[in-house]
């Protein structure tokens, strides 16, 4: 498996990263190199191996159902590049 430019374009689209042609060329090369490197794993037979799902050997510890957060609208909106008193503002979305 190797990656071609059209695949990189698709992945960039999925990742929401704009790439100009120059960047597309050089990143495509990088990605192909990296993928070739990681494909070393194919030398290993892992058919009978269970994937690692968690590195910590315990179950999820839940919290109580209590309201103890929120009511920090100013703090939430403060850093936003575009907002008004109540909302985050983004360019128009068309569905």
């Amino acid at each position: 498996m190797s990656i071609d430019k059209s695949q990189v374009k698709k992945v960039a689209k999925l990742s929401r990263i704009s790439l100009d042609d120059k960047n597309l060329d050089s990143l495509s090369n990088d990605l192909a190199l990296i993928l070739k490197f990681v494909e070393q794993l194919n030398k290993l037979d892992t058919n009978n191996v269970k994937p690692l799902n968690s590195i910590v050997d315990k179950s999820l510890e839940p919290r109580k159902d209590q309201v103890n957060d929120g009511k920090i609208k100013e703090e939430i909106l403060k850093n936003s590049p575009d907002k008004n008193e109540d909302f985050f503002i983004v360019p128009k979305v068309v569905e």
Partner: peptide, 23 residues
């Protein structure tokens, strides 16, 4: 580019804003 941090000025719609911001 929505909640905090850098937002690109370029782009006509939300998707383009995302792409340029992250690009």
């Amino acid at each position: 580019g929505v909640k905090y941090g850098y937002r690109s000025k370029k782009g006509k719609n939300l998707t383009e804003m995302y792409e340029n911001t992250r690009g």
